[in-house]
Amino acid sequence: MSGLLPVEEAQARLLALRESLGSENIALSESLGRYLSHDVRALRDQPAVALSAMDGYAIRFDDLPGPWHVIGEVAAGSVPALHVDVGHAVRIFTGAMLPEGADTVIVQEDVALSGGQLLLTGDGPGSRGRHIRARAIDFAAGDCLLPAGTRLTPGAIAAAAMSGAGQLAVGMRPRVAIVTTGDELVQPGRELAPGQIPDSNGAMLAAMLAGDVADPVLPHHIPDDREKLAHVLKELARRHDVIVTVGGASVGDHDHVRAALEAAGGSLDFWRIAMRPGKPVIAGRLGDAILLGLPGNPSSAFVTATMFLLPLVRHLAGARDPLPVVHRAPLAAALSAGGARRDYLRARLENGELVPLFGQDSGLTLPFASANALLIREIGAPARDAGEMADYIAVA
């Protein structure tokens, strides 16, 4: 279809509207889910010295098969003052420093004490250095452990802490405003007049952003009033990095977002994308803020937020790879041929197979309430049988 942008081009143009925001130093305890703005390099070796990996006895490998005379013990966190000579053994515990002279640990299940001597009762260690964590086996001082742009998971935070870091430099959290439009919308939970519906999109987008790195968002609602919408957009642009509007992005008499953006002094970058659902996506600038206009049908808003809003927020927060990750899995049922736009079908990944959900109309909410995947059907793709591979994006 002429005039429609490919999804990848639209994503690239959206992210190019503004560079990532600045950075700030925060405590490790506050860093979950944030994106590093600088590499994390190790300030120390890990471990700093050779440590025992098991409870047992530190020995010289050449003294096998024993017996040994136990000359003392060493626990984790203590510095051993003992030296292991010929025929000597030191009781050692997991995480304890290896005493001088020892080069192997024999596990306690393979030995027994008898008459003041330590005797081999099992197979024993099969090689020199067995059950020892060598110095810097995890990482060495100066190693780049986590590159800039990495999302901080619990495991990444543990690595940063072990590296010697006390704080982390992370990207700023984008300030996002959600604006839903439409005379028919009513705040969820309130009584509805004839022709009105609950404003589900505002709650949905706020929940999607809450799982990412944006500052907490409370949705605004504006009726179908171009002048009022332009005034609100202008005010929001002064204190937000992203304004996401929902509804009013198409060509109807009550679709005011494009005109309101212009009236507020903003500029349009692109409009309309070769995708389904979600063709009438708007992107532009209003001062330093980016305006992203999403269509109002619930499934359209969900899909376009997944493909554009969340990547934009992650980009501004400093993500190295902000775009959704595409996976592959076999189809659980046959899939018809693709059309003139790329389809993002609500689906479930069950037992390793993709199951397209019944009811793909963009106005339906129930199908994407149970969806955990968006099944991708490319423009003009041939029909496929069950068992053939297909691309998908995982969604929460």
Results as ranks from 00 to 15, higher is better:
L4C: 02
P6T: 10
E8G: 01
L17M: 13
I26S: 06
I26A: 06
R34S: 12
H38P: 08
D45T: 06
V49M: 11
L51I: 11
Y57V: 04
R60G: 13
L64F: 14
P67F: 07
V70M: 05
I71P: 05
G72I: 11
V74F: 08
S78K: 13
P80A: 04
V84F: 02
V84A: 08
D85C: 15
V90L: 08
P99D: 02
D103W: 05
T104E: 07
V105I: 15
V107T: 15
V111E: 05
V111N: 10
S114I: 04
G115L: 01
L118Y: 07
D123A: 15
G126C: 13
R128F: 10
G129C: 09
H131M: 06
I132D: 05
A136T: 14
F139Y: 09
C144L: 10
G149H: 06
P154G: 08
A159T: 15
M172A: 15
A177H: 09
I178L: 00
D183L: 04
E184C: 08
Q187C: 02
G189W: 00
L192T: 00
Q196A: 00
N201Y: 02
A203V: 07
A206S: 14
M208D: 00
L209W: 03
G211P: 13
V213F: 14
D215Q: 11
P216H: 13
L218C: 13
L218R: 14
P219Y: 01
H220A: 04
H220L: 09
H220Y: 11
A230P: 13
L233C: 05
K234I: 00
E235Y: 09
L236E: 12
V244Y: 07
G247W: 05
A249H: 01
G252S: 04
D253W: 05
H256P: 03
V257H: 04
A263R: 12
G265K: 06
G266L: 05
S267R: 13
F270I: 03
P277N: 14
P277T: 08
G284W: 09
L286S: 04
L292T: 05
L292C: 11
P295R: 03
N297P: 14
P298C: 07
S299Y: 12
S300A: 15
A301F: 04
A305F: 00
M307I: 13
G318I: 07
D321N: 10
D321V: 08
D321M: 06
P324R: 06
V326C: 04
L331I: 05
L335C: 11
G339S: 11
R341Q: 14
R342G: 00
Y344M: 13
Y344F: 15
L345A: 02
R348L: 01
G352Q: 15
G359E: 10
L364M: 15
P367R: 01
P367V: 01
A369G: 06
A371C: 06
E378N: 13
I379G: 03
R384A: 14
A386K: 09
G387K: 07
Y392W: 04
A394Y: 03
A394C: 06
V395F: 11
